[in-house]
Simulated assay, not measured.
Amino acid sequence: MSGFGTKDLTSGDILSYVALGDSFTEGMSDPYPDSGSVPNGRYRGWADRVAEHLADHVDEVRYANLAVRGKVMHQIIDEQIPRAVELSPDLITLCAGGNDIIRPGTDPDTVAATFAGAIEELSRTGARIVIFTGFDTNWQPVMRHMRGKVATYNMHLRAIADRYGCDVVDVWSMRVLDDARAWNWDRLHLSPEGHRRLALRVCEVLGVRAGGEWNEPWPPAEPRDWRTARQEDLHWAREFLVPWIHRRLTGRSSGDNVSAKRPSLEPLRARRD
């Protein structure tokens, strides 16, 4: 087991950070706070927020985010891992495999073995590496049947983290994410508040001070009647589920023709909302 996970991220003047993955790390459904806009099609997300928190503790954060929506494991390995190795940062976050796991017929054991190969490659950089478990789907009726598959994958991820000395953000145990307000209307991507809370959780794992508590209880939710809940289910199925199934059947991805929002290590212009 390596000691990469013990690297102090606030001990130097300059910190370099590379985020890898899919829509979860790209920051989908978290627009920039300026009028709720998404400038140039770019989202903010928990990784940008973590980089902003890191900027409070060092003179300069150089940050790259190579994550692209819709990417599956082999695409992340082919398109993002070599670039991350080339950049040789101090910190790497990798969340991958979710788009593989939710596809019918995929084997979590096989996906995890591929993930382990990616971590072995990244570990050669000497960076501190952070990985993420899948979230618990038990609160979502439509995705509840995948709970066992996700749990199996998570057990593999913990073993991989032990082998290579990675930090683990246990998203599965974040019960605060069982609330629908933590998620966008598509029920697959975090809401801005969900991204904010996850960023605080990542900082906690890294030992980096950040304002706020990720597990602060939600205020009481407004009651919803049965009819409203069913209308929301129908809207979700029509606007998200059907197009998602169509893309799978036609071999298309939401990430087609989308490039990484921060392909190089660039100084971060910190911002707060």
Rank of each mutant, 00 (worst) to 15 (best):
R209F: 10
F135C: 11
G194M: 03
A221L: 12
A19S: 09
A64L: 15
I129N: 01
T125M: 01
T133H: 10
I131T: 08
K71R: 15
E204G: 06
E213N: 07
T6Q: 10
A84L: 10
T137L: 09
F135D: 14
S173P: 05
N65H: 15
T137P: 12
N257C: 13
R271Q: 12
V176S: 10
H156K: 03
G105A: 03
P141Q: 11
K7C: 02
N257R: 15
V130K: 03
A19N: 03
R83P: 09
P108G: 09
S16C: 10
E26Q: 14
R69Y: 04
T6M: 01
G5A: 09
D233F: 08
P33F: 07
E216I: 13
Y153G: 04
P267M: 13
E232Y: 08
I119D: 00
L54G: 06
V150K: 03
E239A: 07
W46R: 00
R230I: 15
D233A: 15
G211T: 14
D34F: 09
G70Y: 10
E193K: 04
T110L: 11
A84I: 10
L9N: 07
N99H: 05
L9P: 07
E120D: 04
T250P: 00
E120N: 02
L268N: 13
F24V: 08
A210K: 10
S123G: 01
S191Y: 03
D78H: 14
A127K: 07
H74F: 12
T106V: 03
V202Y: 04
V50C: 09
A116M: 02
A118K: 00
T110E: 14
R197N: 02
M1T: 06
R248K: 06
R163H: 10
D30A: 05
G194A: 01
W185D: 11
G45E: 01
R224T: 13
M174V: 08
Y17S: 01
H189N: 11
F115C: 00
G5C: 06
P31F: 06
D90S: 04
S173R: 12
M143F: 05
L188A: 11
L249C: 11
R271G: 11
S254L: 06
S88H: 09
G97C: 14
P39L: 05
C203A: 11
R147G: 12
W139N: 01
L249Q: 09
K261G: 03
F132G: 00
G148Y: 08
P267H: 13
Y43F: 14
Q75N: 12
Q140M: 12
V168Y: 06
V208F: 14
A199C: 08
L94D: 05
D100A: 06
S29K: 08
L241F: 12
F132A: 02
M143W: 01
I92C: 08
I102L: 10
V176P: 04
I160T: 00
E232P: 05
P192E: 07
T133S: 11
N184C: 12
G148C: 11
P243W: 07
M146P: 02
R224I: 14
I245W: 05
R227E: 11
T106D: 03
V208K: 15
G148N: 09
V150A: 03
W214N: 06
D109V: 07
Q231D: 12
N99F: 07
E86M: 06
R124Y: 00
R209K: 14
R83M: 15
R248Q: 09
V130S: 05
A127M: 09
D167T: 01
W214L: 09
G21N: 07
